[in-house]
Design a protein around this nucleic acid. Sequence first.
DNA 1: TATTGTTATACTCTATAACTATA
DNA 2: TATAGTTATAGAGTATAACAATA
Lengths: 156, 156
Amino acid sequence: MDNPDQTRPAKTRRQRFDPSSVNDIIGYRLRRTQLRIFQQFITRFAEYDLRPAEYSVLALIAANPGSKQTEIAEALGIKRANFVALINGLEKRGLTERRQPAGDRRSNALFLTPSGEKFVGKANAAQAEFEAECVAKLGGQKARDQLMALLDLLAD
Amino acid sequence: MDNPDQTRPAKTRRQRFDPSSVNDIIGYRLRRTQLRIFQQFITRFAEYDLRPAEYSVLALIAANPGSKQTEIAEALGIKRANFVALINGLEKRGLTERRQPAGDRRSNALFLTPSGEKFVGKANAAQAEFEAECVAKLGGQKARDQLMALLDLLAD
DNA sequence: TATTGTTATACTCTATAACTATA
DNA sequence: TATAGTTATAGAGTATAACAATA
């Protein structure tokens, strides 16, 4: 049948909008999902006033104290020029600090302040909770691992 | 052992950078993969001078000729205010046109021009080729379906 | 009153070039 | 010469408010 669920006569019934030409594209679905997840992250972290990029910087410094700006920036795919304002913002909030490393006076070694350590502790806990909810939505750790593996394949 | 693959004595050897604190986050992996796929799309479609958003608009108009601006924009998550410049660009290139619909003189009905139809034909072919390569990277149609299903679960 | 398209505007993110101080 | 950080700037993409025309 051509018009199985019609609610008006076929002649006057408006054709339903068909989004499949873009919805079935992997890249499009990827983008929509990513935007949604980031929006949820932003909402969730509003109380910390922390954007995804800011969280990722703090998490990387926490795991790699003393790293150079360029190292953190490159690991996150952020241009070093754009990283300056980002780290300035975190520094102004008293979360991070630049220290002069022994070997190379051109570079800045990045560290969390004591206040930053405490802040990251809470942020990491919130992120772990958010991550757990994502895993639950996917249907468990196995599905999560599958997704991560598929994303890796796609990114190669 | 604490330092299994050391190439210098442990005392002076620099600790390897550890990106796992962000790399293991679903949303982060999602974003990096999406950016990579979009970059590949942009490179692939450079000869058509077509960005992802522009392609998605053309594809939706092709599948839903006569749609209102707001319908296309909403389907793609684009604010109608921002859609104006986008559709103006496509119209100036002679690919789409606004026609006055019978019922409602406030709205514009969007159509492809004959030139636009030809252009979309080529763009769809290029997209199909790109999509096939993505599916191949994932390991086949079954893996592709798995990925799409997981993304849907995550987006709910 | 509400909706459609539009303009203006601002804010974020990203990209490039050029400068400085060090190496 | 090359590298690390910085500044300035320009371009996308996105968000909101307000307006005219029409419903």
